[in-house]
Design a protein around this nucleic acid. Structure first.
Length: 417
RNA sequence: GGGGGAGUGUCCCGAGUGGCAAAGGGGGCGGACUGUAAAUCCGCUGGCUUACGCCUUCGUAGGUUCGAGUCCUACCUCCCCCA
């Protein structure tokens, strides 16, 4: 299939993970003859990683599966600076407290994909705050800064696009690249790390690290990037009305996560199966042969397998079953997202508007009114036409709940307690 | 230090130079059609309100005016030219 001889690069290439590789032949040979150590950095800009980060986590997963050692590097230090890559505007400067909270939220997800420990193939969790926070400015400039050419740095996309668009790039951010380059060298010293991976927008930063390594006397370092996770129409994946598709269960429930993937475009299903699940390629090949409405089978498998990766098999199966009952049987699945209200709220009658706001299906009463006008709001599967309608005990189904729906797909159960 | 330009609906881009809840896109949400798809078509896309209407919104703070996104002053931020 692929031209690579090492299992690592062969797997990555055949599943569609490779966008660019530096010196592919040399890296291929190295990965074939030895266990290599590779890292990916994750900045702590949010309390959870999102589905767009999932692909690079899978890079670490396959690295470990093919016998090598992954390092998940938390950007406790670099987040204090802020990566300008791919950003139009300066990032808000985060407080150390927020960074630390974010770090805690992000760190947990890796245990689901990697085996950490002290053994030779076990994954390592590192934090660049450990070496960046204590740097001495003048020493750093003399030891590291002298190897960087401003002329060259200005030519990198992350810098150039800002300058071209006449958007400001602060000196703080300008230094991000240098710190990331330094991380690579530091990880080489500490762990013998020779490969840095990341999404394609990280190429410039990674290559800077390789250059720095050469000047500071590390062994040859390598870069490997994967494409950004996009839909076939080119849009970045992971944005919905409700916000990003986070990986932490308390921010996006397993059911919603399942639903997100279930609604994948036809054109993306096979690609996402390769990228976001660990299903063998020949099985994916069978699913790829499905046509027309049968593609829905592949989408369900994609949703379940990918959900199982991060939320566990049981949660994935439960989400699949909830969806099956709701969409295929039209039945009321008790496992739909549920919000509880005080039973007494129903006695005087709870306005539909308030109920939908409470359920989080709409953002305001006005929003609810508009949706009612557009025919998008249903109670117990009956379209609501009167915005003054009140919900009372008489609307309770035999199961003791009231089903609120926005559109065909989004349902919430209102449960009096 | 001097001169010139810019900041618009908190998702984004962008028209608007005295009557504006503010054109037009994109995105998003809803409806129709389908397969919980895509494409297409239609509607919606500041808050409160049954409604008349009220409130908040065009970098920030003042001012002129019956009325300010629009004019004036100061300030903030960014860009360009000169020193």
């Amino acid at each position: 299939m692929s031209a690579y001889k090492s299992e690592l690069l062969d797997v990555l290439a055949s599943r569609g993970f490779i966008h660019q590789v530096s010196e592919p032949e040399a890296l291929d040979a190295l990965a074939r003859s030895s266990k290599i150590t590779a890292y990916i950095g994750f900045d702590c800009t949010a309390p959870s990683l999102h589905i767009g980060n999932l692909m690079v986590i899978m890079l670490l997963y396959w690295l470990q599966q093919t016998g090598h050692r992954p390092i998940a590097l938390m950007g406790g230090g670099t987040t204090r600076v802020g990566d300008p890559s791919g950003k139009d505007e300066t990032r808000r400067i985060l407080t150390d407290q927020i960074i630390n909270e974010n770090l805690r939220g992000i760190r947990a997800v890796f245990a689901k994909f990697l085996k950490f420990g002290e053994g030779p193939g076990d994954a390592v969790m590192a934090n660049n705050a450990d070496w960046l926070n204590s740097l001495n400015y003048i020493d750093f400039l003399r030891d590291v800064g002298r190897h960087f050419s401003i002329n060259r740095m200005l030519s990198f996309d992350s810098v150039k696009t800002r300058l071209d668009r006449e958007q400001e790039l602060s000196f703080l951010e300008f230094n991000y690249m240098i710190l990331q380059a330094y991380d690579f060298v530091e990880l080489n010293k500490r762990y013998g790390c020779v490969l840095q991976m990341g999404a394609s927008d990280q190429w410039g930063n990674i290559v800077s690290g390789i250059d720095l390594g050469r000047r500071m006397g590390t062994p040859q370092l390598y870069a490997l990037t994967c494409p950004l996770l996009t839909t076939s129409s080119g849009a970045k994946m992971g944005k919905t009305a409700a916000g990003a598709v986070w990986l932490n269960a308390d921010m996006v429930s397993p059911y919603d996560y399942w639903q997100y993937l279930r609604n994948t475009d036809d054109a993306d299903v096979v690609r996402l199966l390769k990228l976001l699940t660990v299903m063998p390629l020949d099985e994916i090949g069978r699913l790829a042969a499905l046509k027309g409405q049968d593609i829905n089978e592949a989408k369900k498998i994609l949703a379940t397998e990918a959900t199982a990766m991060i939320h566990g098999r049981a949660a994935a199966d439960a989400a699949a079953e909830t969806a099956r009952r709701t969409f295929e049987e039209g039945a009321l699945a008790q496992t739909l997202p549920t919000i509880e209200i005080a039973r007494t709220e129903l006695d005087p009658g709870l306005s539909v508007l308030a109920a939908f706001v409470k359920a989080g299906l709409v953002t305001s009463n006005g929003d609810a009114r508009r949706q009612i006008k557009g025919g998008g709001i249903r109670v117990n599967d009956v379209a609501v036409t009167d915005e003054k309608m009140a919900l009372t005990q008489s609307q309770l189904t035999p199961e003791g709940v009231i089903k609120l729906s926005l559109g065909r797909k989004r349902h919430v159960l209102l449960k009096p307690v």
